[in-house]
Design a protein around this nucleic acid. Structure first.
Lengths: 202, 202
DNA sequence: GGTTATATGGACACAGCGTACACAAGAGCT
DNA sequence: AGCTCTTGTGTACGCTGTGTCCATATAACC
């Protein structure tokens, strides 16, 4: 059950009584993550998670306050935080590589679909919104802001810039193309974003 | 109970047979828009729309393929396109005023909530996604791109910039703060966005 | 006028949520 | 060991909303 193999044999049906709490919890989270990656938020239902984990719905309701909370927990148990900002001393290189990696994550892995649907769900689920900000977006923002501040300290960027706004103009622009795909989200786009800001438009 | 706004009297309950198609259609759209603004996508259900419009669900199912399509139509009948890009000859002023107006629309009217929830719904509703892009985001993008191109023609901006990417760095950044409110979406933020791009970060 | 198109009320099955209750079996204590 | 507490399990219920089907009544068209 701990494996992610595609077959993923449904856990053998147990009898009635109690099973070790940690084991059940782990199986539920694994099932939630797997289901999320496989079907996205659309097909993500408490009933399916319970069925795939071989657990009862009651158990899930007892531990997670909302569907969103379960989805978020499930996502992190499968994907993990995946943070870390390389610092080579060159802001442009660091921002670009980080942004390009982000674009690839969104385009070439199921993470993109899941993230966009988590954000979608968060629009009507305050619990999920809070959890998402606290556990995902805020830490990532903080890392980017730190990197920018280091560059300011090194004199590579103006001292009077607002780092937060820069984050929105880099990652926010990518999220925009992820969520409203009028235009494609490409590696070239990511590089252009950094270039636009660095050189200015004039 | 039956409604929140004093005007637009509750459609008097009709008898059984047929009513003028246009009239019913108009009442459904009005009810859909009103409900959307009042409760957001969360409380937006076919049943409620039908009840408020004094129509039957069957009628709605016959005319609109999905809930998203109805919501989009309802939104436009109430809000309207609201486009138009002033062209004063000064790019900075034009982009800034347009962006500031957008921020106010998102913050100070119900439109912000509705838009964010329409985008959310579009993540799992391909029909709605297509409609949203076609009828809302694409036209607005086009106007902004035109404005930027005019500025390039005037020599106010570099000729080798990618206008589309600029749009994402201005409006996309705002959408980012709208959808993932780690940081506030303020008028000052809007001005900073333009400034960052114009002056460059160095 | 007669005919056709279509809006209506009502019914149905179905899915998913959220809750309640009684029971069984692990966990931990004495 | 025995005992109790905790907690997962099966099952059942009511609720909301969806999507589809009728038969009927009436406007719109010829």
């Amino acid at each position: 059950m701990s494996q992610l193999t595609p077959d993923a044999g449904p856990p053998p049906r147990r009898g009635r009584g109690r099973r070790p709490a940690d084991q059940v919890r782990a199986e539920i989270l694994a099932a939630a993550g797997k289901l999320l990656l496989a079907e996205g938020m659309a097909g993500f239902t408490i009933e399916k998670v319970a069925a795939q984990a071989g657990a009862s719905r009651m158990t899930i309701y007892k531990w997670w306050p909302s569907k969103g909370a379960l989805a978020l927990d499930g996502y992190f148990t499968v994907v993990g935080p995946t943070l870390a900002f390389h610092d080579t001393g060159d802001v442009v290189a660091d921002l670009t590589s980080q942004l390009v990696a982000f674009v690839h994550l969104m385009n070439d892995t199921p993470a993109g679909r899941v993230i966009s649907q988590l954000i979608a769900q968060a629009q009507t689920d305050p619990d999920l919104a809070a959890g998402y900000r606290q556990r995902y977006s805020a830490p990532r923002r903080a890392l980017a802001v730190e990197a920018i501040n280091r560059a300011v300290a090194r004199g590579q960027l103006r001292a009077d810039i607002d780092p937060e706004s820069v984050v929105d103009q880099l990652w926010g622009a990518c999220y925009h193309r992820l969520l409203i795909p009028d235009q494609p989200l490409t590696e070239e786009f990511a590089r252009t974003l950094v270039d636009n800001l660095m050189r200015g438009l004039r």
